[in-house]
Simulated assay, not measured.
Amino acid sequence: MTVYGATNVDVVVIGAGQAGLSAAYHLRRRGFAPYDGFVVLDADPAPGGAWAHRSPSLRMATVHGFHDLPDFELPAPDPAAPAREVVPGYFAAYEARHALPVVRPVRVTAVRPQLGGRLLVESDAGSWSARALINATGTWTRPFVPHYPGRFAGRQLHYADYRGPEEFAGLRVAVVGGGASAIQVLSEVAAVADTLWVTRRQPVFRDGPFSQEAGRAAVALVEERVRLGLPVRSVVSVTGLGPSVALRRARELDALDRLPMFDRLTEHGVAWGEREEAVDAIVWATGFRPEVGHLAPLGLREPGGGIRLEGTQAAADPRVHLVGYGPSASTIGANRAGRAAVNGIVALLGAPEPALAQRS
C-alpha cells in the first residue's frame, strides 16, 4: 500500500544491528505484520551491522562482551574465529529464523514530518510513510577523531579502519584512547611494534566483574546525560576496563605504560610542551558519535547538543524511539531497549488486531 508515492506501514526500524533486530523481534511478537505493519531498513548489503566491519584480527575470544538476541542463542563459537564472520552469520540466521522484514541495502537520507501526523522516511531506495519510528543506526559510521594543532606527516587512522597489526610491524605506533578498542589494538600491535599508549584520563582498571549495583549506577550516569539532552557518553567510559583476554595480553607485552594526552602533533610525532616523541603512525581509538543526522528535519536536538530521551522515546516527538543510543549502546542494553521501544509504540498506537505473537 502506498501514500503519496511512499510505502505505508505502521513502524519503520532504521538499522539491522543488535538493537534493530531486537526491536524487529518484539514488533513481530506484538502482532505487527512483516512488510505491511513494519519494515527494517538496513544500509549494509548483508547482515551483521557494525560487526561486519570490524578488524579481521578481532577474535571471539577477545570480543568485549556479547549478549544473545532474544529467543535464539548464539551457538558456541570457536574462540579463534573472527568476530566479523561469527556475529554476521548469527544475525543472518536470526533474521531468517524469525522471518524479519529486512530490506537492504537502503540508506536513509532524511526523516520528515508528514501531513496527517505521519513520518516520511526518505532513502536512496524509495520512501516509507510510518506512524512511528525506531532509530537503531548505532555509531560505527561516525568515527570521532579529536582535533589537535599541528600536522603529522605519518599515517593516521581511526579504529574503524584498523585491520590488524601486520601493517605496523617494526614501526613505532601511538595508540590514543582509554577504552576496549585501544586495549585490543595495544594487545596486537605491541607484539610486532613499539607502542605508546596515550589517554586523556587515567584509565580505571577493574580486577573482577562489574557488580550489578555498580553497573546500574554507571548506566544511570549515562542516562542522566540523555535525559538532560546532552551529548551521550559510552557506558564503558564510566565503568572502567574490566578483565579480558586483550587486557591480559597487553599487560604481558608491557604495553600499558600510559602517557597523558599530548598537546599537539608534529611532523614526526606528538609533543607535550618541550617533549616530543617520534612515531610512524597514530591509531585513534577515540570512539564514535551517534549516527542521527537523518533525523535533523524532526528538530529533536536540545540546546545542549543531544537528543533528550524519556526511556527510549524522544522527548520532542513521542513517535520516535532511539535504541542503541547512550545507555543502550551495548549488546545487552540494545536488547532491552528494543523491547522498551516496542512497548512504547504499542502504548502510542495500540496493538494490531489480532495482537498474537507470531513465530516462523
Rank of each mutant, 00 (worst) to 15 (best):
L228H: 15
G229P: 05
L230R: 04
L230T: 07
V232I: 14
V232Y: 01
V232M: 02
R233F: 02
R233C: 08
R233T: 15
R233D: 15
S234W: 01
S234V: 00
S234M: 06
V236S: 13
V236Y: 03
V236N: 02
V236I: 13
S237V: 04
S237H: 02
S237K: 01
T239P: 03
G240Q: 06
L241D: 00
G242N: 12
G242F: 07
G242V: 07
P243V: 00
P243G: 06
S244H: 08
S244K: 08
V245T: 15
V245E: 15
V245K: 02
L247G: 06
L247N: 03
R249M: 10
R249A: 12
R249P: 00
R251E: 15
D254Q: 12
A255M: 05
A255C: 07
L256H: 02
L256S: 09
D257T: 15
D257G: 14
R258M: 11
P260I: 14
M261A: 15
M261E: 15
F262E: 05
D263V: 06
D263T: 15
R264L: 03
R264S: 05
R264M: 04
R264Y: 09
R264V: 05
R264H: 13
T266M: 07
T266F: 03
E267G: 11
E267V: 11
H268T: 15
V270M: 11
V270D: 06
V270K: 08
V270G: 10
A271W: 05
W272C: 09
E274A: 14
R275Q: 12
R275H: 13
D280S: 01
D280V: 02
D280F: 03
I282P: 05
V283T: 07
